[in-house]
């Protein structure tokens, strides 16, 4: 079954998106379907919750969630933070702005972290940093590839300097993952900004992005205030980042699972296998 998916359907759908830029290959289906995809990729992709995202990426029944009990508290005694956390929990039915765990993508195992843009704007406090770091360490321990979906307004200011240090923590863990030769795919979704952009979002071996997602270090409003002029249309969108060389590929949501599976497959048969087997 897996073979079928790779030999036919998935490669076709992956190519579909590239149709806009590169010559259309023979594999691509009728024009009308292409047009529909092109229209879709120009539209900003709607934000979805981390739970829904996991359902769309991870094979049914294969997801095992990590660290479900980890909950933020108020280390700086920041005013109203506990209330903000409580209402975010009530609104999202989640305990924090990231879900981590392991599962399968078209049969291939991976560790996955997915940020939730609707939980306090997906901001990274110490629990987000800790859950992701533990997930990275699990990937090292189990020698599994890692996928992180980013969606964040940046560091969580209510946890002050401790939030900032989560950038260091996640990046240091990713450095260890890299030394072990384990694949890390970052998938940037709307919005990915601030401390998340300046840490794990930009550290993927392969960086994918959803169409039209806002991706940047500083937010557009802050930049406009700094330079005292309006930003050009499309600035800090996925397409802009790809043009500037910071994103490997833009993938529409419908094709994400197949694209991730294709990347995982290529990496599962690379490396030592390639070196030891004779070439034709």
């Amino acid at each position: 079954m897996l073979k079928d998916l790779f030999n036919k359907k998935s490669y076709i759908t992956i190519n579909m998106y590239e149709g806009g830029r590169s010559p259309i290959s023979n594999a691509i289906k009728p024009e009308d379907k292409l047009a529909a995809h092109t229209a879709k990729e120009q539209k900003k992709t709607e934000r979805i919750s981390a739970r829904v995202r996991i359902r769309t990426i991870i094979d049914e029944g294969s997801f095992q969630e990590y660290d479900t009990d980890l909950e933020a508290w108020n280390p700086l005694e920041f005013p109203d933070y506990p209330q903000k956390l409580a209402s975010a929990m009530a609104a999202t039915d989640e305990k924090e702005a990231v879900i981590t765990g392991e599962g399968k993508v078209l049969g291939m195992g991976c560790v996955i972290g997915v940020m939730n843009p609707s939980f306090m704007m997906g901001s990274m406090g110490t629990v987000v940093g800790e859950k992701l770091t533990r997930a990275i360490e699990k990937a090292i321990e189990k020698k599994l590839p890692l996928i992180i979906f980013t969606a964040s307004g940046g560091a969580r200011m209510q946890e002050g300097i401790l939030s900032l240090m989560q950038m260091a923590k996640t990046s240091a863990a990713l450095a260890r993952l890299a030394e072990e030769g384990i694949l890390y795919i970052a998938v940037l979704t709307d919005p990915t900004t601030g401390g998340v952009t300046a840490s794990f979002a930009m550290l993927g071996d392969i960086i994918l992005a959803e169409p039209r997602a806002l991706i940047g270090f500083a937010g557009p409003r802050v930049i406009e205030q700094t330079i005292k002029q309006r930003l050009p249309e499309g600035f800090q969108r996925s397409e802009f980042l790809m043009e500037k060389g910071f994103v490997d590929k833009i993938v529409i949501r419908e094709n994400l699972k197949e694209t991730l599976a294709a990347i995982l497959k290529i990496h599962s048969i690379g490396g030592e296998h390639n070196v030891s087997s004779p070439r034709i």
């Binding site: 950038m167 260091a168 990046s171 240091a172 990713l174 450095a175 260890r176 890299a178 030394e179 952009t197 300046a198 840490s199 794990f200 979002a201 930009m202 550290l203 940047g216 270090f217 500083a218 802050v222 930049i223 700094t226 330079i227 930003l231 600035f235 800090q236 500037k244 060389g245 910071f246």
Partner: peptide, 26 residues
């Protein structure tokens, strides 16, 4: 702080910082 300007974004402010965090740790 790191500069919040148009060119800084174009040249990858986020990537530059992230890369330092990763490499300095090792």
């Amino acid at each position: 702080g790191a500069y919040c300007g148009l060119e800084a974004e174009e040249r990858g402010q986020g990537e530059a910082i992230a890369s330092n965090l990763l490499h300095l740790s090792r």
